[in-house]
Design a protein around this nucleic acid. Sequence first.
DNA 1: TACATTTAAATGTCTGACAATTTCAGCGCA
DNA 2: TGCGCTGAAATTGTCAGACATTTAAATGTA
Lengths: 249, 249
Amino acid sequence: MKIDPAKKADLSAQIAQAIRDAIVEGRMIVDERLPSEAELAEQFDVSRPTVREALKRLAAQSLIRTQRGAFGGAFVNRLSYEEAYGQHVTTSTLLLSMNAVSFETACEARYALERACAPLACARRSADHLATMRAEIHRQAQPGLSDESFCASDVAFHRALVDAAANPVLSYQLAGAVEAMQPLMNMITFTARSRETIESLHTRIADALAAQDEDAADTALHELEAYTLTLGRDVMAARARKSAPSSSV
Amino acid sequence: MKIDPAKKADLSAQIAQAIRDAIVEGRMIVDERLPSEAELAEQFDVSRPTVREALKRLAAQSLIRTQRGAFGGAFVNRLSYEEAYGQHVTTSTLLLSMNAVSFETACEARYALERACAPLACARRSADHLATMRAEIHRQAQPGLSDESFCASDVAFHRALVDAAANPVLSYQLAGAVEAMQPLMNMITFTARSRETIESLHTRIADALAAQDEDAADTALHELEAYTLTLGRDVMAARARKSAPSSSV
DNA sequence: TACATTTAAATGTCTGACAATTTCAGCGCA
DNA sequence: TGCGCTGAAATTGTCAGACATTTAAATGTA
């Protein structure tokens, strides 16, 4: 790990990469303490600030955690699902917002992934998950709900559906995708009529899970995807008309 | 963005969060230049090294890029699929290796996700994707191939399957999951007999995609999952016998 | 105009110092 | 002995100032 070839990259980036490799390749195990900043500086033959920049890079990725005081230092961090999930959501959200991903593409991906876990959710759904889904459906029916709150509830509903599959790896991958789509969904204005339709589809999904009916769940998810797509297209069309009214006259 | 409440966290972490928020919330747009380190230091009323630590945290997440020289500085980075994909793979790999995810769970997630994109891949697969899959199948049949190379080819095959769905969001989410499982897969020793079985299943999948037969693809993926699971369990069982031989006597 | 040189602005790095925090050992005291 | 207090030591967090390096624009020159 002491190697530090005189490449063209920044020293702090090189040092961060060397330590990252050691962690990823298992040469350093969880909760193992790294040498102190002063020792690392000596090992890599750089100054302490340079070492610190490298450590901050690793901390930003939750690869290490630091602790002040005597017998403190930097420790290899056990990456928790929560930390990984948070990073995943941030990255996915930025990826969607910065790369002009179309509503259609995002929507298709989201529902394809959700349908993937529907069979598992049917087999394993607990009373807890069903209760959460019913509660969110009930919340979505409340009249005074803002569009943002409606979307948040929608995310919670779908998250419960994903979690019902009882596979943490699937939850991690999928919930990130669902949550990352929320900004796109927030652009949609939900009329009372469309909320009613969505609510009924959500109810059908919850019923299908309760009855452990894979086909019904798959069908309802397909219909929900088609309906969401319709809503999204309407919003995009309305926006296009507003921004370029002359072309439609 | 100048806000900097005297909380308990490190200054560099607070500053990084403030800038991160500005980017995520769209107050700073892609390619926009951040103030220079000296200006940021003045704005936040901290020293330059502290500002630099904050910037390195953001650079580690590919949120910004820096450029030296006159008219250089830190710029909001357009997160590319490649960068996001790399981070996703690193995070997923660590999550799997550090959290004792069972082979069964990872395997289930992986194939559930792959089946999700099989229908899309059937509809949209290009000649290129089919050619890649055939080429990898051919490679897997070569006799001298090491287990690692066989796994790498397996990843490439499945990656082509995912990419055939022609949905970049799906590719990003899924390829990360597939690739993150490679270390787990590498633990399996592939006998000539098992390679033959896998190769025939891969051929069936490629054929199903070529024929645009969704059901055949789904069935073949299910069988491949079951077979992979069997192989994995055998390895685990053999390992358990070796590490605790007394209990079996 | 075209090319070489200078210059300025910015990041990258180093040195040294001090502040804040945390643990632990040793001391005093009952 | 046992307990609490205190201080030393180790370590990270922060600061100030300086110099090195890189890059592109500005300037000068043929």
